[in-house]
Write a protein that binds this DNA or RNA. Structure first.
Lengths: 197, 197
DNA sequence: GTCTATAGCCAGATAGAC
DNA sequence: GTCTATCTGGCTATAGAC
C-alpha cells in the first residue's frame, strides 16, 4: 500500500467519524502511521484532503443507485433490489450515510458540486416509469417523488441516526444488525403492499 | 430579554447550524450582540453552553412524543397524530433533527445521558399496545419495533437529510415544504394501509 | 519521500478596568 | 454586569535536514 493510500484510508476513517470540523490532521497522521507533514506533502491542505474523501464517498454510493434506477426492471423489482443492495453495502460502511448527510447540511455549496456531477443519482427515468405504471393501473395514484422519498427514508434513516434509534427503541448493536437484516426485505414488502393496486 | 436569554438564543442558532465542533464562540457573541467575554461569564465554557442547548433541544421533542405515545388512542390514531404534530413542529425548527442526530453520533456519551433522562421518549407502552392489537387481529403480524422505526424514518429523515433530499429529487424549498405538508397525512395513510388486517 | 522543528494563526478562556 | 485587552494552547501549514 502506497503512502498516499494509507493517508486516504486513515482520512476516510477520521473524517467519517468526526466530520470536517471535528477531525484533526494529527489524528489522521496517527491513524495512517506516518507524520503529519506527509499529509500536507501529499494532499496540500485539510480542505483538499477532505474533498477527496467526500467525493470518493459519494462516488461509491451513486453508481450502484443509478444502475438499479436505470435498469429494465419493474418498479417493484427496483425497490426490492435497492433496499437489499443499499443495506448490504452500508452495513459494511456504517459511517457513510451520516457523513454525507452531515457534510451536505454543513456545506451547502457541496450540493451544487454534487448536482453538477454527471455520476450523481438521477431519478428522472425511474420517476417517468412510476408515472407510466400508475397510468397502466399497476400502481395507485401517488406522487412519484413521495414514493422515492419513502424508500430512501426507510432505508437510509436507521443508519444516519443509528445512535438515536438505538437509544429510542432500546436495542443493542446485535439487535440493530438483526433488524437491518430483516429490513432488506420488509421495507420493499411494506411499500409495495401499500402502493400496488 | 435578559442577556442570558440573548446568549441562549444565539447559541441555539449557531450550534444547530454548525454543530459543536464547527461553532465559534465569537459567532455566538456576534449573533447575540454582546461580547465574547460575557459568554464565559454566563455559561463558563463552550462545552457547558453546548450541553444546555442540546438538552433543551431534546427537552422540546421528547414530551410531545411521549404525550402521544402514552395516550388512550388506538395505534392508528397515534401514528396519525404523531406524523402530523411532529412535522408541524419541525417545520418551525428545521435544524433540530439534524442537530440532535449529528451530535448523538459524534458524542456517543450523550446517548447514555439521554437514556437516563426520565423525560426521554419511551415507546414501551406503545409497543405493548401494538402487540395487543396484533393479537386482537387489528394489525398484521409485524415486529412492533420495525413499525416504530418505519414511522420515525418516514417522518424525520427528510428533515435530517434535507440538503441531500433536495439535491437528489431536484426540488426547490417551496416544493420541499409542499411535500412535507402532504406527508402530514400521507405517511400515516401509507403505513396504516400496509399493516391493517 | 519522510522526518523534526517551528512558524503563524486562531479560538477558548481569563484578567482587570469601569 | 459588561467591556477591552491579553494569555495560552492547539491546530494547520511550512521550512529545512536527511
Amino acid at each position: 500500500m502506497t503512502t498516499e493510500e494509507k493517508i486516504f484510508n486513515a482520512a476516510r476513517i477520521v473524517f467519517q467519524k468526526k466530520g470536517f470540523a471535528g477531525a484533526r490532521m494529527q489524528e489522521i497522521a496517527d491513524e495512517a502511521g506516518i507524520n503529519k507533514a506527509m499529509l500536507h506533502y501529499c494532499f496540500k491542505s485539510k480542505e483538499l484532503l477532505f474533498k477527496a474523501i467526500f467525493m470518493n464517498a459519494f462516488g461509491q454510493l451513486a453508481p450502484q443507485i443509478n444502475e438499479i434506477f436505470n435498469s429494465k426492471d419493474t418498479v417493484f423489482d427496483k425497490i426490492t433490489k435497492f433496499t437489499h443492495s443499499y443495506i448490504s453495502f452500508v452495513v459494511l460502511n456504517p459511517y457513510l450515510p451520516q457523513f454525507v448527510i452531515q457534510e451536505m447540511n454543513n456545506n451547502p455549496e457541496f450540493v451544487m458540486a454534487f448536482l453538477k456531477n454527471e455520476n450523481r443519482p438521477n431519478p428522472a427515468v425511474l420517476i417517468a416509469q412510476i408515472e407510466k405504471e400508475i397510468a397502466d393501473g399497476i400502481i395507485k395514484h401517488i406522487n412519484p417523488k413521495q414514493l422515492l422519498l419513502d424508500v430512501f427514508s426507510m432505508t437510509v434513516f436507521p443508519f444516519a441516526a443509528k445512535m438515536m434509534v438505538k437509544g429510542m427503541i432500546q436495542i443493542s448493536d446485535a439487535e440493530f444488525n438483526q433488524m437491518m437484516e430483516e429490513r432488506k426485505t420488509s421495507i420493499a414488502e411494506q411499500i409495495i403492499n401499500s402502493i400496488k393496486k
